[in-house]
């Protein structure tokens, strides 16, 4: 997806990708996977292709301004940041290093999606651990409660970023931002954000 053709373009791409995410400053835009390409037009004019995580993500404007500032500081006279929608950003675009940083920051990283294309909606339990007898775990789950509409392996549990337990439950489908869900760890009882799979 990311293309760079000249040495200078590669350097500019690296610089644009080094900008921290305005909402999750532990991540760079490269680690988030949102800087798609850099095209040099002449000696000091550059166009950057940026893709939003969510269509309505309000951080895109701050990202654009930060990219413009960084590239101007490095000698670019004209910086244009173009928003591209296609192909749609997916949480699979977050790098391995990005996932590690999210976990360290206290946010459960998105799981790897097992299917591409539109996300099917399925009804299932809100717990992510493998199925166990409700009578044994003491926290029965209504059989009709829907699971997150993700195309993930059901055995791939969302783990608590604090204690690592796979025994976690969903509290709310939407958390501090649209890209996160609010969960609670049933082992250490700490609530935590989970970066939802899209």
């Amino acid at each position: 997806m990311v293309t760079a053709t000249t040495t200078l373009e590669a350097e500019l791409l690296r610089l644009a990708g080094s900008v921290p995410d305005p909402e999750l400053p532990v991540l760079t835009l490269h680690e988030l996977g949102v800087v798609r390409a850099v095209h040099l037009h002449g000696a000091d004019a550059v166009e950057v292709e940026l893709t939003p995580t969510y269509t309505g993500c309000p951080a895109v404007e701050a990202m654009s301004l930060d990219i413009e500032r960084v590239l101007r500081e490095h000698g670019m006279r004209e910086v244009t940041v173009r928003k591209v929608l296609s192909p749609a950003w997916s949480t699979d675009d977050i790098t391995a290093e990005g996932r590690r940083k999210l976990r360290e920051f206290g946010i459960a990283p998105p799981r790897v999606r097992t299917a591409s294309g539109p996300v099917p909606v399925e009804l299932g339990p809100t717990h992510t651990r493998p199925h166990t007898d409700p009578a044994v775990n003491g926290s029965p789950v209504a059989p009709t409660a829907p699971a997150a509409p993700t195309a993930c392996d059901p055995a791939d549990a969302v783990r608590c970023p604090h204690c690592g337990s796979a025994d976690t439950e969903l509290l709310s489908r939407f958390s501090s931002t649209a890209c996160k869900a609010l969960r609670r760890c049933l082992a250490c009882r700490e609530p935590f954000d989970h970066f939802k799979e899209v």
Binding site: T55, L85, S86, S90, P118, A148, V198
Partner: peptide
């Protein structure tokens, strides 16, 4: 392009509505 992106977002809206309806 927009639909391919938005369909992932709307899947969560639909799930939210279904969960509350139940």
């Amino acid at each position: 392009p927009l639909a391919a992106k938005a369909v992932n977002e709307v899947a969560y809206h639909r799930d939210h509505a279904e969960q509350w309806t139940l």
